[in-house]
């Protein structure tokens, strides 16, 4: 087995790793200390290993690390801005959407990606997005509520921000 180089960006940091050509992205990320990326099934079924790949949620257990060459990865560790939680993280806490927290990182990432594409998702769309994330603790109601609440808060903030932007212009 020959090792190879992998160049990628994780949480905004440009990195250069040595990997084995057959390694999965999940294993490499965890080895590099991104413990927020969880191992739940290694078959693409639970979503605990989700990361954003160029802004899109994927299962890091379904991907060879080498496929990530040159790409941008966001893990749950990169979501909060220093000590400041992302509104989606705040919403998960405020709505009791976190129980054991094992599925939470993946859900938060998927939810953020959804709001980028659809700022005003329906409950149906939120559920479809969450369907890639098995949660054995919550029954999904509170995570769904958290995502919808974060979406509406984000829209309201955006609306409030708008006039300011116009003044600046």
């Amino acid at each position: 087995m020959k090792n190879m180089e992998l160049h990628l960006t994780v949480n905004g940091e440009s990195l250069n790793w040595t990997i084995a050509p057959g390694e999965l992205l999940l294993d490499v990320l965890r080895r590099q200390g991104y413990f927020g990326v969880k191992r739940g099934c290694e078959k693409g079924e639970c979503g605990a290993c989700a990361v954003l790949l160029d802004g899109m949620p994927i299962n890091s257990c379904l991907m060879f690390a080498a496929q990530a060459e040159g790409r941008q990865i966001l893990t749950i560790e990169g979501v909060a801005d220093g000590g400041k939680l992302d509104p989606m993280q705040e919403a998960f806490l405020d709505h009791g959407a976190v129980q054991c927290g094992f599925c939470t990182g993946g859900m938060v990432l998927s939810a953020k990606a959804l709001l980028e594409r659809r700022p005003d998702p329906t409950e149906e769309e939120v559920r479809e997005m969450l369907a890639g994330h098995l949660c054995r603790c919550t029954g999904y109601r509170k995570p769904v509520e958290a995502v919808l609440a974060a979406a509406s808060k984000k829209r309201n903030t955006a609306r409030r921000m708008k006039p300011v932007a116009e003044v600046v212009r």
Partner: peptide, 9 residues
């Protein structure tokens, strides 16, 4: 075809 996560790959 699978979950939204799978469909991205």
């Amino acid at each position: 075809c699978g979950s939204a996560l799978v469909r991205n790959l």
